[in-house]
Simulated scan of single mutants.
Amino acid sequence: MTKPEAGGPVPHLTFPKLGGGEIAIGGARDRWTLFVVYRGKHCGRCKRYLTGLEKMKSDWENAGFEIAVVSADPKGKAQADKDAFGWSFDIGFDLSEAQMQDLGLYISDPLSPDETDRRFAEPGVFCIRPDGTYQIVALSNGPSARPDLTELLDGMIFTIENDKPARGTA
């Protein structure tokens, strides 16, 4: 596994999006991006995390961020969670293993067929600058370790207001 380089370019990747179209990351755009990779429908912690993100959605958008969320789940599972929890941010599906590797994510095998039917990515949270480079890279090898979204937003507002560079580049 190659870890993403803080301050380095985000790979150009696309994912099919619920409701049609696609989510694209990498490359320049007008806004910052909060990009969250979640484990999938089988993960209760992911559902709590994304429900917390939904409650903060306007705060992130007011700070200048677009939000994109993706998992390896197929469309039906992703749609079922969106419907059940009322998430209104863009949700991608069918994250491939090659894309997981491109993002430096940890990959897990299901513990049983009851968990899920495919390999999946462990959590990743990325703050991406408008120029398409990584500002924040937070990778986890399990469901219990993720950045607190309130702290992350507060730190990102400070970073943007003070034009701070990516840290941890060495």
Results as ranks from 00 to 15, higher is better:
112 S>R: 05
49 Y>R: 04
57 K>D: 12
52 G>E: 14
6 A>Q: 10
95 L>Y: 06
134 Y>C: 00
92 G>E: 10
122 E>I: 06
135 Q>I: 06
112 S>G: 11
150 T>D: 15
37 V>Y: 03
79 Q>L: 15
37 V>W: 10
93 F>G: 03
6 A>I: 06
115 E>V: 12
169 T>Y: 03
158 F>M: 07
105 L>R: 00
41 K>P: 05
106 Y>N: 15
2 T>A: 09
15 F>Y: 15
57 K>A: 15
87 W>Q: 03
44 G>Q: 13
8 G>P: 09
103 L>M: 11
167 R>Y: 00
54 E>T: 13
43 C>T: 01
131 D>Q: 12
75 K>M: 04
82 K>L: 07
69 V>P: 00
47 K>W: 09
168 G>I: 09
155 G>I: 00
76 G>W: 02
9 P>M: 10
147 P>N: 07
166 A>W: 09
57 K>N: 13
133 T>Q: 08
35 F>Y: 14
33 T>S: 14
164 K>L: 15
69 V>S: 00
47 K>T: 03
54 E>H: 09
151 E>M: 13
54 E>Q: 15
170 A>P: 02
81 D>V: 10
165 P>H: 14
26 G>F: 07
110 P>S: 01
129 R>L: 00
2 T>M: 01
97 E>Y: 02
32 W>K: 05
133 T>E: 11
38 Y>R: 05
90 D>M: 10
79 Q>W: 01
34 L>A: 01
69 V>C: 01
99 Q>S: 14
72 A>D: 03
82 K>I: 05
146 R>E: 00
64 G>A: 06
91 I>T: 15
13 L>H: 13
82 K>R: 15
68 A>G: 02
136 I>C: 00
96 S>Q: 02
116 T>F: 04
58 S>K: 15
34 L>E: 14
73 D>H: 03
8 G>Q: 14
164 K>P: 00
63 A>M: 04
83 D>I: 05
67 I>S: 05
72 A>T: 11
151 E>R: 12
140 S>E: 08
107 I>Y: 14
90 D>R: 09
140 S>Q: 07
75 K>V: 03
68 A>Y: 12
36 V>D: 03
60 W>I: 12
54 E>C: 08
4 P>A: 13
136 I>P: 00
87 W>E: 05
79 Q>D: 15
151 E>F: 03
56 M>K: 09
159 T>F: 04
49 Y>K: 08
39 R>M: 07
15 F>W: 10
64 G>R: 09
160 I>R: 14
76 G>M: 02
153 L>G: 04
7 G>Y: 12
135 Q>F: 02
118 R>H: 15
34 L>F: 08
14 T>W: 08
78 A>W: 00
4 P>L: 15
130 P>T: 11
19 G>W: 11
12 H>G: 00
64 G>W: 09
108 S>L: 11
135 Q>C: 02
158 F>V: 05
7 G>K: 08
99 Q>N: 12
28 A>I: 08
133 T>S: 10
53 L>D: 03
156 M>D: 02
36 V>L: 06
141 N>S: 15
87 W>C: 03
55 K>D: 14
153 L>P: 04
9 P>F: 06
30 D>M: 00
65 F>C: 13
157 I>H: 01
22 E>N: 09
71 S>P: 12
138 A>V: 01
89 F>P: 12
3 K>Q: 10
90 D>H: 11
67 I>V: 13
15 F>I: 11
150 T>R: 05
39 R>Y: 10
43 C>R: 02
14 T>C: 08
